[in-house]
């Protein structure tokens, strides 16, 4: 390792006082921080392991499920048309619950209320596959958070959480990803933490996983108690992250170290 961890942590702490949002002109996807080899895995669909889940999601899209015996396709038709741009707009406001909802939550809600099927657990192969498939339909499109005043409160809460120090290391998301994104922590690039390619295939996980799994990993990293999957806190963070990354292209399924 180039830097002792304590030194890196000290640098991060020093950055807290000056943590500022990254200007739009400097926003860069995590892809830009990866080695050429990892970029190559992502760039080629024949070698990107995330495509295995996209394929599975595509099969599930056409498969009848639940008491309705309807598939996603029964209502939405060709995902290439109907789902194009959808992931770019999520999280969105959900009128049924009166709260904001993320893409995986929306897919599962649709499954339960329209297909009358059982709920798919967060991080299950099926839900990750469907989310990857829907997300993949927006690949190349810019992240475009909806201009919806009903999301304002949750988005503001997400920003507050992003800037709140937590855990035994007493770091906020912002301490690293706003103030020190150019730095390295051990051998790893810190990066700007933009949600451009979720679900992502992470080499460390050796599988695909959601943005919430990634955030839980970071929370464990700073020795904080992670929020629960599907919690309002995580959806709020996702809302703020989408706003923070507005304009960056969707890469689903991205590959990350």
């Amino acid at each position: 390792m180039r830097f002792p961890l304590a030194f890196a942590a000290a640098q991060l702490c020093a950055g807290i006082a000056v943590a500022q949002e990254i200007p739009p002109s400097e926003r860069r996807s995590g892809t830009n921080f990866m080695s050429a080899e990892t970029q190559a895995i992502q760039a080629d669909d024949g070698s990107n392991p995330g495509m295995l889940w996209v394929l599975q999601g595509g099969s599930l899209w056409d498969e009848p499920a639940g008491a309705s015996r309807r598939s996603c396709a029964s209502c939405h038709g060709e995902a290439a048309t109907s789902m194009r741009g959808v992931a770019a707009r999520y999280p969105a406001f959900d009128a049924a619950s009166g709260a904001s909802i993320d893409l995986a939550g929306k897919i599962d809600q649709c499954r339960m209320t329209r297909q009358h099927a059982t709920s798919l657990p967060r991080e299950s192969e099926e839900l990750l596959g469907l989310t990857a498939y829907v997300g993949h339909q927006s690949r190349g499109m810019p992240i475009a958070p909806p201009d919806d005043a009903r999301l304002d409160a949750a988005r503001a809460e997400g920003k507050r959480l992003f800037q709140t120090r937590m855990g035994q290391l007493d770091l906020s998301c912002s301490s690293c990803h706003d103030a020190n994104w150019r730095g390295r922590l051990g051998g790893s690039a810190v990066t700007q933490a933009h949600p451009t390619g979720y679900p992502i295939y992470r080499l460390e996980w050796q599988t695909i996983g959601s943005l919430q799994r990634r955030m839980r990993g970071c929370m464990v990293g700073v020795r904080a108690e992670p929020f629960a999957y599907g919690s309002a806190e995580f959806v709020a963070l996702e809302l703020y992250l989408a706003e923070r990354a507005a304009g960056l292209a969707i890469e689903t399924p991205a590959v990350r170290p």
Binding site: L185, G186, G187, E204, G217, C218, V220, G221
Partner: peptide, 9 residues
Amino acid sequence: VTLAACIED
């Protein structure tokens, strides 16, 4: 082989 800075539980 470089090691990841944070290992997930």
